[in-house]
Amino acid sequence: MNTPPAARGPAPGTAVVVGAGVAGLATALGLRRAGWRVTVLERRTRLERYGTAFGIHPAAQAALDRLGAQVGDVLRRRSVPYRRAEIRTPDGSRLARLPLERIEKKAGRPELLVSRPYVIDALVQALRSWGDVPLRLGEPAGDIAALRAAHDLVVGADGINSAVRTATFGTRSRPRRAGTVAWIGTAGFESPVHGETWGRGRFFGLTPVEPGRTNWYATAPEATTADELRALFAGWHDPVPRILEETDPAGWIRYEIRHLHPALPSFVREGRVALVGDAAHAMTPNLGQGACTALLDAEALTRAVARNGGPEGLTAALRDYDAERRRAAQRVAFASRTLHRLMTTRHTRTRDTLLRCLP
C-alpha cells in the first residue's frame, strides 16, 4: 500500500505534469510520494503504448525502486535479462561484444529489456493506486503561463516537441533531423543471436523482449516502403531477412530520427518550471538510453523536491536537480549522437577495424 510520508514542515505544494509518457508518469509518482498534490495532463486521448523494447540499465532500475518498489518489482517480473550481444558485419562476422557482462558485474544486476506497454502500465497502476492523482487524457497544456499561475511547480514531460520548453525557453533549442529514418517492430519468434549489425549507411538491431518474441529495429535512409526495406537487408546474415519476411508490416513503425539541439543551458527556469525526459534532452536512440535518462530525471527531480520541503524550497530543489542531471543527461545525448554517426557512416573499413580492437 502507498502511504504518504508523515507531514513535516510546510504544507505540500501543487504540481502539474505535462505529458504522460515514462518521464511524466514517473515524475508524477515521485511527487505524489513526496506528499505533493499532482495533476497530469496528456494531449493525446490515449496513452502511448506503441513501440517495442526498453533497455533498463541497473542505475535506472534503482531509480525505479526509489520511486516505488512495486513498480520495479512489476517490471522485473515482465522483463528479460540482457546478458550477451554482439556487433556484426552484414555477413555475420563478429566485430565486437557489447559490454553487458561488465555492466552486470559492476552493478550486481543485469540490464533488463521490457516491452514499453508494461512500463507504462506499471507506472499508471502505481499512480492510480493513490486514488487522488488526476490523469487527464485529451487535455493539452494550453496556456503555460496560466499553469504556472495555478500551480507551484510545472513539469514539462511533453517530449521532443515540448510546449513547456518552447514557452519557457524559446525556440533556440529545438528538434533537429539526424538525417536517418528508423523502423521498429516485433517478431513472433526468438532470434538465435542478439545485438547489432552495422553495414554501409544502415544497421539492424535484435534484442529479446519476452519469451517467444524478438524486438528489432533498423535504419535505412533510402527505404520508404516495407518492400524496399526488405530488399536492402535481403543479403544480410540470418535471421535478419527472415524477421522482415515473417513479420507483418502493418505492425511496423517508421519514424524520422530527431534530437534536441543545441543543448539547453538549464533544465529549470525561475524556480517554478522543470523539464524532464525528451523535453529536456531528446536524443537519438543509438545508446538505448531514452527511457533510462527519463527515469533518472524523474527520480532526481522528485528527490530534490522532497529534500527541500514545500513550495518555499523549490528554487533550491530545482537548482539541485539541474546540477545533478543536466550535464549527465547531455553527455549521454552527445554520446548517442556520436554513435549514430559512427553506425551510419559509409566509410566502414576504419570503423570496423577499430571495433575489432575492442576487448
Rank of each mutant, 00 (worst) to 15 (best):
H57F: 14
E111H: 04
L342V: 15
W183P: 00
P265D: 15
F189P: 00
A167G: 08
P249I: 13
R351T: 08
V273D: 07
G179P: 11
A291P: 07
S336R: 03
I253E: 13
S93V: 09
E312D: 15
L100M: 08
T247R: 10
W216I: 04
G131D: 07
P110G: 14
S162A: 04
T166I: 11
T180V: 13
A294K: 06
G251H: 14
P4T: 01
I87S: 04
R230I: 03
H281W: 08
E210L: 11
H57E: 11
R172C: 00
L25W: 08
G30K: 09
S93G: 13
G24L: 06
A231K: 06
G313P: 04
G55S: 14
R88T: 14
I56C: 03
A304M: 07
L135D: 05
E246P: 01
R46E: 15
P117K: 11
P5R: 15
A126Q: 09
T27I: 05
L147A: 05
G199Y: 06
H237K: 05
R33M: 08
A7P: 01
V133Q: 03
L355S: 01
R326M: 10
L41R: 11
A141D: 00
A59L: 11
D320L: 07
L342M: 13
A234L: 04
H237Y: 11
R303M: 00
A15V: 04
R272I: 01
L232M: 09
R349H: 12
E190N: 06
H57C: 02
L153I: 06
R43Q: 15
G68R: 01
A146R: 13
P5N: 05
T186Q: 13
L135I: 02
R172S: 07
L29D: 04
L25T: 00
H151T: 01
L127M: 12
R94V: 15
G142N: 03
P239V: 07
T344M: 11
F54A: 11
T219G: 07
V124S: 10
T345F: 13
R148G: 09
V38P: 01
P262W: 13
D152C: 06
G205L: 13
K105S: 12
F334E: 15
G290F: 06
F334P: 00
R37C: 11
